[in-house]
Design a protein around this nucleic acid. Structure first.
Lengths: 239, 239
DNA sequence: TAGGCTTATAGTTTTTATGACTACAAGTTT
DNA sequence: AAACTTGTAGTCATAAAAACTATAAGCCTA
């Protein structure tokens, strides 16, 4: 009976090769036109058929959990080599109606310009949702998503991870809009630029925006090498 | 063969009643005489016999993971009703030499004055270790412990959780020493007091220290109700 | 092509927090 | 009574933050 359940959930995957009581679920953030978005999947198979939920799946016996999260992300969406970090484990006894399953939540930040999301084999549809237009989700996925948003809000002020959501080249206004959206605040343009530039984290690309119907802004790039050098010297992001 | 292993690890516990591939491990912090300490357990049974490790154990099928952590903490040390929060899940495939086990790390903050630690039935000895005098630990427990210390350092600046490590009544100097020890910094007394008092989080108990060989300092108490009221109004701890 | 519109960017001013330091108060110990 | 230890108040210089003003650069439209 349990065998059937698992087959329903995983599609063709062989039961013996995965851990039976732990799964992984992933909150994938994107940013477009000033909106923070999350990628959700409509499941094609099993009991969850037709319902929206976070992309996720089972952990193989021989892989670590971070590794499993990377693999699943790739299998379900085609996304690879992105910022991916664990949230925490979720394990209420009734979180999953058909058995005692603990899930480990992850969150990813992706640059939407770079990736064209495709639905994987267990997902019939993958779609971006604005953070304030999330449909009802299966199981405790809303809780995981909300925790993910909070974690992102905290994390974005401790370390310059927000750049993972932006294109390679961006303007200071884009960066500010990103922070405004994530933190839910309004900021002052001149003050924001001074504050950010003072940290010397950005590389001035000596280039300007193109095809905009107003004065073109300078383009910048985030430099991870600079950030690492600064952190070694006792640098503090603390945005 | 696996059955034997689990029996070794859990002592008398019946295999059927617990999840087979997930455990819980707990980093228990205390503070005494200006030193941050961690409670470790020397295991009395099984393969781990005689080795120091974090207190931990198995999750029952019918309990949530937070609940399991609370129960285990109580069973192994007698501690109850304390600050307890999840760290994250640790799941490298080789972290546990005798099988594929994922563990969920927790950390607790306890007021040592209030609790007299006693070793539980699977632990032959429970002992406090200063944070810089930790012995070699079993499995990946050193990684979990280090993650716990980092988490504590981050968390203590976002929310006033440090009080859980202090007695009910404390002086500003004790509080400062606590922060100095956790964050590994030196601070200026007058500046620290101004900064902390300005937040209006502390209740002046109109009492003074007793039996000290110098001028007695005022005693304060942390008030959780005040904190909650302030956070509702958009208060920011940000120590 | 001029004037208006939008956004970029520079600068100013006021307020507030921080860090370093001085001074003195209140007790204990010798 | 003097020396010593720790507590607490206050000062001053500096730096950062917040609020605001001004101007520059480009597009759009009439």
């Amino acid at each position: 009976m349990k065998k059937t359940l698992i087959n329903n959930e995983t599609g063709e995957r062989k039961k013996a090769s995965v851990l039976s009581s732990v799964t992984i679920d992933c909150v994938i953030f994107g940013f477009q036109d000033g909106n923070l978005e999350v990628l959700l999947i409509k499941h094609a198979l099993g009991i969850r058929k037709g319902k929206w939920g976070l992309p996720g799946g089972w952990i193989k016996k021989e892989e670590g959990i971070d590794e499993a999260a990377e693999r699943l992300l790739h299998e379900l969406t085609g996304i690879k080599d992105v910022f991916l970090e664990q949230l925490k484990a979720f394990g209420e006894p009734d979180r999953f109606p058909m058995g005692r399953i603990i899930t480990v939540g992850y969150y990813a930040l992706i640059n939407k310009e770079k990736y064209d999301i495709k639905a994987g084999y267990t997902a019939s549809e993958a779609k971006w949702f604005k953070i304030n237009q999330i449909p009802t989700l299966i199981y405790d996925h809303e809780e995981i998503l909300n925790y993910g948003i909070q974690k992102l809000q905290r994390r974005v002020r401790q370390a310059p991870i927000g750049f993972n959501l932006l294109p390679e080249k961006f303007t200071l206004l884009q960066l500010m809009k990103l922070y405004e959206e994530i933190l839910g605040t309004e900021m002052d343009k001149p003050n924001f630029r001074r504050k950010f530039l003072r940290m010397k984290l950005l590389v001035d690309l000596k280039e300007k925006e193109k095809d905009v119907s107003h004065r073109a802004a300078k383009l910048y790039r985030f430099d991870d090498a600079i950030y690492k050098k600064l952190t070694q010297k006792g640098f503090n992001f603390e945005f």
